[in-house]
Design a protein around this nucleic acid. Structure first.
Lengths: 204, 204
DNA sequence: TAAAAATACGAGCAACTACTCGCATTTACA
DNA sequence: TGTAAATGCGAGTAGTTGCTCGTATTTTTA
């Protein structure tokens, strides 16, 4: 097996190089988009040579896959267990605070994540790498909805969760480009939207 | 001036070729995305040679600009004057029917339009070409809001319109990939979302 | 009809792409 | 310390890209 992420014996130096290369990839992908970004530019941005890049990553796609995997890992760490089950019993507004705020902070702190997530023209391999990130938000919301409204038919509940996630993602471009001054108002309005959408579905 | 769209003396044959090339560009852009699409592929999809393509379009960017301009023109024709002023007095649900349905139909009928509109990594020239299309929806909604709620402060009204447009665009991926059977329910839910968001802002 | 202009072609070019390979240096480990 | 493995480099390769240009054909125009 030539799996770059598990099998090879890595030195501490190598692990650090991989992190630098992923950081560089995040920058370049965020600035130019995945398709237009060149692997030579990623290597240069990391202060490495093309040969070094390809010692750690099989090909261009593998760079984005590893980057996405790292983002998913950090997303889980950032707000993973924190609200998984406990927030479902909170009042709706408080629950939204607990769910939205960390995601907004994460997305704004990681524009490379947003660049990959919002790109609709990724290859199937990359689309698969995106799925866990999308599933993370969907499933957590779905589980919260299930606990808050046990009588909610699972099918309709799944769509409600999916629509809610897409509503949030629709406002993400505004949230990403907002300056610090405009952000709180936008986030508040985002929560109002979700509250207005979810409230009647949670207590009919 | 070497402006391809206005100055050059075009024959009927040439105009037809341009339409064919734009149709081909729409296909290729929708399938692969603008960045990954090659001009040779566009020419081939139109049954033309690269040389022929470049007789009508200065460069790759000009193809997308012309395509976007054609979409804006068709968008105006499709639902332009139809509801511009009259729908503002309708009940909210009826107004949304009149606004949403034509846009949904147009977007689904023109995946090339959606491909360009949803691409967040276009060059500045392309971003400028996108602006009229975005302004079209925003300004029409803003004008409707102004007529329905004259006391609405213009600043807050503008943001309400912008947020509403982004909410719709957030659900567009679902709408675009839905099959004919699932579409009506999705569109209905889209209208419910917008209704729930706009209603309290229109009659406080 | 003849010249001018528009349309059409496609081989080909310079620039760039993802990626490789031979070889030098550094580290781990016996 | 010695040697195998890991890391590092960057010139180089084959393929692709956006785009050009010489030339041939069709259409307009005078």
């Amino acid at each position: 097996m030539t799996d770059d992420t598990t099998k090879r014996k890595r030195q501490a130096r190598g692990e650090k190089r991989m992190e630098e290369l992923l950081d560089a990839a995040a920058e370049v992908f965020a600035a130019q988009g995945y398709a237009k970004a060149s692997t030579n530019a990623v290597a240069a941005a990391a202060g490495a040579s093309p040969g070094t890049l390809y010692q750690f990553f099989r090909n261009k796609e593998a760079i984005a896959e590893a980057l996405m995997a790292r983002y998913v890992q950090r997303l889980r760490a950032a707000h993973g267990e924190a609200f998984d089950l406990s927030v479902a019993d909170l009042p709706l507004a408080d629950m939204l605070d607990r769910v939205i705020d960390p995601i907004v902070a994460f997305d704004r702190a990681n524009p490379g994540f947003y660049a990959l997530l919002s790109d609709p023209h990724l290859s199937s391999g990359l689309a698969n790498a995106k799925r866990p990130a999308q599933a993370l938000m969907f499933e957590q919301l779905d589980r919260i909805l299930a606990k808050r409204a046990p009588d909610f038919p699972p099918e309709a509940r799944a769509r409600t969760a999916e629509v809610a996630v897409h509503l949030f993602r629709g406002l993400l471009p505004l949230i990403m480009s907002a300056d610090e001054a405009a952000l709180p108002g936008l986030v508040a309005e985002t929560k109002e939207v979700l509250s207005a959408y979810l409230a009647p579905r949670l207590s009919p």
